[in-house]
C-alpha cells in the first residue's frame, strides 16, 4: 500500500503555489494540506497525481484572527489551532464544538480547516457548520480573489465549486449573534468516526419566539444541506416539542436521495435525520433560553 510516484513541490508562498498550479495540467495536480484524507487515497493509489503541491509551507495561509464581526481562519490553520484558540472559544462555541468532534487529536493536530472544506465529505462536521453559520470561503486563482458562500461552495460528494487553478485561502466564519442557541450532534458507529447522520441547529428567541433559524443535516446525503421547510415551521413560533417533531418530520420527508451503505440504509438515515433534527432543536432552544435570549 504505497503511493505511485509523483513530483513534489512545497512552495513557501501562495503566489508561487498559484504559479505552479497554472503551469501544470490541473487534472494531474493534487493539492496537499494536512493530508488526513488525501494521504490514504495516495497510499491506496486511488489518487495518483503527477504532481503533489504541498501548501503546508505557506505561512501566510495559517492563523486565526478576528475580522468584521467574525473570524478569519487561514485555510492551513489546523484543527488543533482552532481547538487551542481562545478567540474561537469566545466568539464561536459552535465552531469550537464541531472542531472537537472531529476524529481524534492525532488527526486534528495535522488536519486543516481548509482541507476539510475542500474535501467536502458529506459526513464531515466543518462543511455542515459552514453552511449553518453562513461562512464565506475565499479562494485565489489566476483571476484573483473570489468569495464563495458556503451554500454555493459545497456541490455534492467530494465536490466543491472551486475552479481548477484556484486555492482556498481563508474561511470567514461569522460570529454567533448574541443570544443564539445552537447544537451540533451526530451519530457515528464509533466515537470519532464520520457521522452516519449529523445535525446542526441554530436559533434565537425574541420574546420567546424563534427567529433566525438554521437547520442543517449532514452525513445523510450528498452534502450538508439547510432544511428551510423545517426552519419555516418554527420561525415566528414559540418552541414546543410538537413543533420540533413537526420540523423533524419535515426534514425526514424532504431529505433527497439519502445515502445507503453498509452502516445505514437510506430509510434509516432518513429517520435519524428526523431524530437529530428534533434533538438539536431541543438543545438549541435550551441554550437560547439559558443565554437569557
Amino acid at each position: 500500500m504505497k503511493p505511485a510516484p509523483f513530483e513534489y513541490a512545497a512552495p513557501p508562498t501562495l503566489d508561487e503555489a498559484l504559479a505552479i498550479l497554472s503551469e501544470n495540467d490541473p487534472d494531474e495536480v493534487k493539492i496537499l494540506a494536512g493530508g488526513q484524507s488525501l494521504m490514504p487515497l495516495l497510499n491506496m493509489r486511488l489518487a495518483r497525481p503527477e504532481l503533489l503541491l504541498d501548501l503546508t509551507r505557506i505561512d501566510e495561509l495559517g492563523g486565526i484572527s478576528a475580522r468584521n464581526g467574525g473570524l478569519s481562519i487561514g485555510a492551513l490553520a489546523t484543527k488543533r489551532d482552532v481547538e487551542d484558540s481562545a478567540l474561537v472559544r469566545e466568539r464561536n462555541p459552535l465552531f469550537m464544538e464541531s472542531t472537537i468532534m472531529i476524529g481524534h487529536p492525532q488527526i486534528r493536530n495535522r488536519g486543516t480547516v481548509g482541507g476539510s472544506m475542500v474535501q467536502a465529505d458529506p459526513a464531515a462536521e466543518y462543511p455542515a457548520v459552514a453552511v449553518a453559520l453562513g461562512a464565506e470561503l475565499v479562494a485565489r486563482g489566476p483571476g484573483g480573489e473570489r468569495v464563495i458562500e458556503a451554500d454555493d461552495f459545497f456541490i455534492t460528494y467530494l465536490t466543491t465549486s472551486l475552479e481548477p487553478g484556484e486555492i482556498l485561502t481563508e474561511v470567514r466564519i461569522p460570529d454567533l449573534a448574541a443570544g443564539t442557541g445552537w447544537s451540533i450532534q451526530e451519530l457515528a458507529r464509533r466515537h470519532g468516526d464520520f457521522a452516519i447522520v449529523g445535525a446542526v441547529a441554530m436559533l434565537r428567541l425574541e420574546s420567546g419566539i424563534c427567529v433566525d433559524l438554521r437547520v442543517v443535516i449532514f452525513g445523510a446525503s450528498d452534502r450538508a444541506r439547510r432544511h428551510s421547510e423545517a426552519e419555516a415551521l418554527l420561525a415566528g413560533e414559540r418552541p414546543s416539542a410538537a413543533l420540533f417533531d413537526a420540523a423533524g418530520r419535515a426534514v425526514g420527508q424532504s431529505l433527497e436521495d439519502p445515502t445507503d451503505d453498509v452502516h445505514a440504509s437510506a430509510e434509516y438515515r432518513r429517520d435519524l435525520a428526523r431524530v437529530l433534527c428534533v434533538r438539536t432543536l431541543t438543545e438549541a432552544v435550551e441554550r437560547a433560553e439559558g443565554s437569557g435570549g
Binding site: 451519530l187 458507529r189 452516519i196 452502516h263 445505514a264 434509516y268 429517520d271
Partner: peptide, 8 residues
Amino acid sequence: AAPKRLWD
C-alpha cells in the same frame, strides 16, 4: 447487533 438492525 448493529444499530440499523435494532432500529429495524
